[in-house]
Nucleic acid binder design. Structure first.
Lengths: 215, 215
DNA sequence: TAAAGACAGTACCGTACGGTACGGTACGCC
DNA sequence: GGCGTACCGTACCGTACGGTACTGTCTTTA
């Protein structure tokens, strides 16, 4: 019943040059405002580079997609969470912060576009885009949040056996049906205020479920 | 912040003939064991019919996909829920039943394949497959579960203001990260026992959050 | 039995797209 | 200056696939 987290991702090939980053940004821009299908031609045109260069740098279409996903992922992992000396207020703060930024991510056009492409590619069973997106999305945040939960437990604020299970519940409370609806094209527009209140609700519900009973 | 449930789906075109059903089943089988891409040729070959017939019956590729999704949906809506005279036991029973069958659906190869195709198609912005999948999946179950929740409230068992919001929380507690992980190709195999225990956990958590405080 | 459909099978058409080849230009380096 | 390298732009190739047309066969109806 536990996960098999796919193949561990290759240890991050070296960073793209500035020019390559510009190309990847063009690819990203293309998939985000999606009017046009993501063809090699379209990327080359948008990035003002030749297709030949694209193939030289990234090998093939899949390589370009992979590099694009990695490039986007490399910009997201920003916030770090402080887990020492956790009191009830700091715990709530941390969880709230996480929930809010996670909601902002999954609601972003970039995330929706990226996930759509990765899912489509996964369906046609070539490339490991899905694995990469999972590793940098769902699993990455899991690894960042679980220490917070464990610190909360250490501080006697939370009670649970399995931090992975606790995190998955939190994940469900935060995301609910939002991601699948967006992926399927529902218009559901969550503005910043909506995200904040949604995050707050999720955190309160999570705390209600996992708060350590007063001794 | 609320949803815009896409365009209401056309009032279900007339039921397909047995032969047409066989064709749709072939399409379904093709997308489920996915070794092959879902081309018109492949469907025709698998269904032992001519492409011309396919186009005559379904108009174009999109029509075929749409009919396939509708056909699958028409077989899923089975269980009906009894909402009169709801006591605590019956409420838990109902919720458990729903959670279990919903988990079984989203874990099925059919659902994963169908959602992948709908999401891919939504990405390339033609067809309303995503809307149809949403209408028959997420929204359909919402409409079936909310009466149960409301009956629970009427019976003084549950407390909430907005049944839609309550349902979305339930949805999140049941599904958590399962659907997105499957769509992205994670192997996560949930057997019947795993589904049962997962469903039970979700129901207990939901009741813990929404149970009416004893007066 | 003749005429009319419905349909399988297959050949075919047009186009989109992944991938390659090649000419042309700018910039280093000897 | 000559030469190599890196790159853009574009033309090109092969193939896959959506969609159409045609032929032959079987079934139905009169």
């Amino acid at each position: 019943m536990r996960a098999s987290p796919l193949k561990a991702e290759a240890p991050t090939t070296e960073a793209p040059s500035p020019r390559q980053q510009a190309v990847l940004d063009a690819a990203l821009a293309l998939m985000v405002d999606g009017g046009e299908p993501l063809t090699m031609d379209a990327v080359a045109r948008r990035a003002s580079c030749s297709k030949e260069t694209l193939y030289k740098w990234f090998g093939d279409r899949d390589g370009l997609l992979t590099a694009t996903v990695r490039w986007q992922a490399s910009r997201v992992h920003a916030g770090r969470y402080e887990v020492s000396d956790l009191d009830a207020v700091a715990l709530r703060e941390n969880l709230l912060d996480f929930a809010e930024s996670w909601l902002a991510v999954i609601c972003s056009r970039t995330s929706v576009a990226l996930n759509r492409i990765a899912i489509a590619e996964t369906g046609s069973r070539k490339s490991n885009l899905g694995g990469i997106v999972l590793a940098n999305g769902r699993f990455a945040i899991g690894e960042r949040v679980k220490p917070v939960l464990e610190a909360g437990r250490m501080a006697g604020l939370l009670a649970f056996d399995d931090s992975e299970a606790a995190f998955r519940t939190f994940f469900g409370l935060v995301g609910r049906d939002i991601q699948i609806r967006l992926l399927l094209g529902d218009a559901l527009d969550l503005d910043a205020a909506g995200i904040r209140s949604d995050a707050a609700r999720a955190v309160e519900q999570f705390l209600a479920l996992y708060r350590q009973a007063k001794p």
